[in-house]
Design a protein around this nucleic acid. Structure first.
Length: 682
DNA sequence: GTTAGGG
DNA sequence: CCCTAAC
């Protein structure tokens, strides 16, 4: 039997960094690190940073002036992180940053990373993803392994639940971080007078899931939707029913363009068909069990103030989750078809100098007045140079949730394998990069070049209507979509995309969150696969708009809802690979490749790389060799059989010609060799 | 570290 | 795009 579990996690608890697979050979070759560095994901990083901050924010509210508690917590986190990363080369360190009584935060920073990025250690740095992972792992333990460090956090602070810990992330802080091509700046500020925690993620049967059309069973299951119960939370719908994948290109993108693309000076927008191949029919007759997402929901919050203690909120959740685990027993893993799931590409790996920026303001609604316009708190220095000179819109993103996951795993799988599977799924999704969509009044704002003022986002009364959603990255995003002139603004209400993760299909269906509100009916989803393909019904969800699952970002007011952390297997971390994102060659690149091969011939891939792709860091000579291989193949097949961005026939002809020529040369060489040998023998 | 080829 | 063998 195959079990399908819908997993809804608060983003906070599920920040999984892209973990490169360190194969033995990779380690041996020392390419591990390089690969790792190549896998930068700005979009995700951004989110992780924000979420990570929240998660790590000082547990205690502004009232906390207990320095010893700070120390304790820091120590706890330190040990947790250390424990989590002990097998890593990097050293993590927890730092406490005092930013005023109301802004006490604890940061964990990967010093080496910081250093590498050239950031001043004095910056309020939030760790790279790694930290989040470590913490998440720690937090997850109570769930899957009895007690854990997570609880220690709380216990030491008279709070004993993760939720509580997470709920205290209200603190304000400023963060600056640079991820290669991405420069992020996040500023948050504690709103001292937060409204009572009243809302959280609750389930709503009114909102169905966006499910894989291929799986009627799943569709029928209609897992509960995750919606905000916070009446005050106006979460714009995320996603657009009509938004097929390509349209998303217009979405604000946190990532910068590819550097190597610039050399070509030409970018190629993704064609719709590329991303809409219908999910392969699997003929899956297995019975699938859809587990209500509630079991996986994170720290649901009760609307009424009766439950002010987030601890209480969390306990049930953990129990449920524990049950879930217990019920899953098996001995065999159904490994993910990872390649199928790494289809998203993240443009974040830009080699260029473009930097994107993210400014977040945490002003609460209660203190929104100060949130609308103000630049006074902008830090001086180099970072602000990326900020608009005019009035600043301050937004606050309380949390993001990881896109929904549907996982199939044999009943006979072990719990451990389930964990690994989930981990892989999450890693795959997040590791592939996320994009951020901006919604205003439920409508997607696609004009990336418009100013906030022009779109009306900057208007105070519109801030509440502003929403963000996470979307998996398309296989390729026109670099141009990340204009350096558009700083990123995010707000608290962040609906989250839903992701289906059927391992059998190898196709990820992505639904974008929707809000149960009647007017808010935007649904969007797309199918992504690692293959270029004919357009598939972009509306796996549209047809079933009612089925689309709503995952509403945690309302601005509750943060604790994010405490849920799925089981992470630190010990298996290294086994969870992060496949490089797929980055189809553009015609321009093909052109360059062909030209170089014409000149240098096959078999000199390193030279080809140096000659034509020297500044395209993500193109290794192996990539070029592989590309040539596929080019030759492509040239030989009929145009109808070709997929992906069409390569001009002229180029293909040259490919064949060059291939033939150099093959001949090679043959000649061999012949000569043989002759020489025979001569010697004679 | 490169190259070649299977997956 | 990954992985390995072979050099």
């Amino acid at each position: 039997m195959v079990l399908q579990k819908r997993l809804d996690y608060g983003f906070n608890g599920y920040q999984v960094p892209p973990i490169p697979r360190a194969t033995r050979s990779a380690r041996r070759r020392g390419s591990f690190k390089k690969k790792h560095e190549e896998n930068q994901m700005c979009a995700f990083d951004l989110l992780a940073i924000v979420a990570g901050k929240l998660l790590l924010d000082k547990e205690s509210a502004p009232s906390s002036s207990d320095t010893s508690a700070d120390e304790d917590q820091r120590a706890v986190i330190n040990s947790a992180v250390k424990n989590e990363w002990q097998d890593e080369e990097k050293s993590l360190k927890v730092e406490a940053c005092d930013q005023g009584s109301a802004d006490k935060n604890i940061y964990v920073s990967d010093l080496s990373h910081v250093h590498r990025q050239g950031c001043s250690s004095k910056e309020s740095l939030v760790t790279e993803n790694g930290l989040n992972l470590g913490l998440a792992s720690a937090l997850a333990k109570p769930d899957c392994e009895e007690r854990s460090n997570a609880e220690k956090f709380g216990n030491g602070q008279s709070k004993s639940e993760i939720g509580t810990f997470a709920s205290k992330v209200e603190g304000g802080s400023s963060e600056y971080i640079e991820f290669g091509d991405c420069k992020l700046e996040a500023e948050t500020k504690r709103a001292v007078k937060d409204e009572p925690h009243k809302s959280g993620m609750v389930q709503s049967s009114t909102v169905a899931n966006i499910c894989n059309l291929e799986d009627p069973v799943v569709l029928d299951a209609k897992p509960p939707a995750l919606v905000s119960s916070d009446s005050s939370a106006k979460v714009p719908l995320c996603g657009n029913p009509n938004s097929s994948y390509p349209t998303n290109q217009d979405d604000v993108n946190v990532v910068s363009r590819d550097d190597d693309e610039n050399s070509s000076g030409c970018t190629h927008p993704i064609t719709t068909k590329k991303f809409f191949r219908p999910a392969p029919r699997i003929g899956d007759r297995r019975i699938r069990k859809i587990l209500a997402s509630k079991y996986w929901k994170v720290a649901p919050r009760l609307k009424d103030a009766t439950v002010s203690n987030s601890d209480r909120d969390l306990k049930p959740v953990f129990r449920k989750r524990q049950n879930c685990y217990r019920h899953r027993r098996s001995e065999r893993i159904y490994p993910f078809k990872k390649r199928k799931h790494f289809a998203y590409s993240s443009p974040s790996n830009s080699d260029g100098g473009m930097s994107c920026e993210f400014v977040s303001d945490s002003s609460q609604k209660g203190s929104n007045e100060d949130a609308s316009v103000s630049c006074s708190r902008m830090r001086g220095g180099q970072h602000t140079s990326f900020l608009p000179r005019d009035s600043h819109v301050k937004l606050r993103i309380k949390s993001f949730s990881v896109p929904e996951l549907l996982i199939e795993i044999p009943e006979s799988s072990t719990v451990g394998s389930l964990k690994r599977t989930v981990m892989e799924a999450v890693t795959a999704i997040l590791g592939s990069g996320l994009r951020v969509g901006v919604l205003l009044q439920g409508k997607k704002v696609r004009e990336d070049n418009k100013t906030l003022q022009q779109t009306g986002i900057s208007r105070n009364n519109q801030l509440d209507a502003l929403g963000f959603c996470l979307e998996p990255n398309p296989s390729q995003i026109p670099p141009s979509l990340c204009p350096g002139d558009s700083p990123f603004f995010l707000q608290c209400d962040a609906p989250q995309p839903i992701l289906r993760y059927p391992h059998t299909t190898g196709v990820v269906h992505q639904g974008i969150c929707a809000v149960p509100e009647p007017h808010a009916n935007n649904l969007g989803n797309y199918i992504e696969s690692d293959h270029d393909s004919a357009p598939s019904p972009t509306d796996t969800s549209m047809d079933k708009s009612t089925n689309s699952k709503a995952l509403v970002a945690v309302p601005a007011m509750n943060v604790e809802a994010l405490a849920v952390v799925p089981a992470l297997r630190k010990s298996k971390r290294s086994e969870i690979a992060q496949r490089r994102i797929r980055r189809p060659f553009s015609v321009t690149e093909v052109e360059a490749l062909v030209h170089a091969v014409e000149k240098l011939g096959t078999g000199r891939w390193r030279d080809v790389k140096l000659r034509a792709f020297d500044n395209a860091k993500h193109r290794t000579y192996v990539d070029l060799k592989d590309k040539w291989k596929t080019l030759v193949h492509t040239a030989r097949i009929s145009p109808q059989q070709r997929r992906g961005e069409p390569v001009p026939q002229e180029l293909l002809d040259r490919v064949l010609a060059a291939h033939a020529y150099w093959s001949q040369q090679q043959a000649k060489q061999q012949f000569k060799h043989q002759q020489a040998e025979t001569c010697l023998l004679l």
